[in-house]
């Protein structure tokens, strides 16, 4: 029986969205899918009458776009709202950091609201384009580098962010991480079998 008076309890072990203690990673042909539990996320919505902030020096992108600077990324998530992402900061109070950069704005912690999956191609953009056409119904222009789209994927609401021709990120709600992973890997696997 545990001693209730124990002062120094062991730290709680966090789980990744896909349920493991370490992130999932898999490859099919040229495509590699990696779960990214280290990325911190916070939403940022300037309040009425505020000037548009520039947190961490990021210029908040126009509708349908994303912008990166160093480990920081901003993506447009809706009229008057952005998501700010930071690699490697999931275990910090990132919302507080964003709030400090945008005093008076509405900031909400979103880190654990999402599963973040990076998909990289070792054969330039074509395999990613073939993968996306099996997943999302968007015109090619909305999937060019620098674009971020919020859309439906296998009945899930997702962000699809094309950071470069050969890489993109898919964000889906954390609780459905397994379904999203299944959809992505199944499509990637079929593409490997029948390019």
């Amino acid at each position: 029986m545990a001693d209730p008076t124990l002062a120094a309890t062991p730290r709680l072990i966090p789980l990744c969205a896909l349920g493991g203690e370490i992130p999932r990673q898999t490859s099919f042909g040229a495509l590699t899918l990696i779960e990214r539990p280290d990325v911190a996320l916070a939403s940022l919505a300037p309040r009425g009458g505020m000037a548009t902030p520039a947190p961490f020096g990021l210029t908040l992108p126009q509708p349908g776009r994303c912008a990166s600077a160093g480990d920081m990324t901003a993506l447009w998530s809706g009229p008057g709202q952005w998501m700010i992402a930071a690699d490697g900061q999931a275990d910090t109070d990132f919302a507080a950091a964003v709030q400090a950069q945008a005093p008076g704005a509405s900031v909400t912690d979103q880190t654990d609201g999402w599963v973040w999956i990076d998909i990289a191609s070792a054969a330039r953009g074509a395999p990613l384009d073939r993968l996306l056409e099996k997943l999302v119904n968007l015109p090619p222009a909305a999937l060019q580098p620098g674009r971020a789209a919020r859309t439906g994927l296998h009945h899930l609401g997702v962000f699809v962010m094309r950071q470069g021709a050969d890489r993109l990120a898919v964000l889906g709600m954390r609780s459905a991480a397994g379904s999203l992973w299944h959809a992505l890997t199944q499509a990637a696997q079929r593409l490997e079998t029948r390019p």
């Binding site: 939403s43 919505a45 309040r47 009425g48 009458g49 008057g80 709202q81 509405s106 909400t108 912690d109 979103q110 880190t111 654990d112 609201g113 999402w114 709600m173 954390r174 609780s175």
Partner: peptide, 13 residues
């Protein structure tokens, strides 16, 4: 009205 909304259902256990 000055109000902003976002879902946090999945963010918090």
């Amino acid at each position: 009205l000055d109000v902003q909304l976002i879902s946090t259902t999945d963010a918090w256990a």
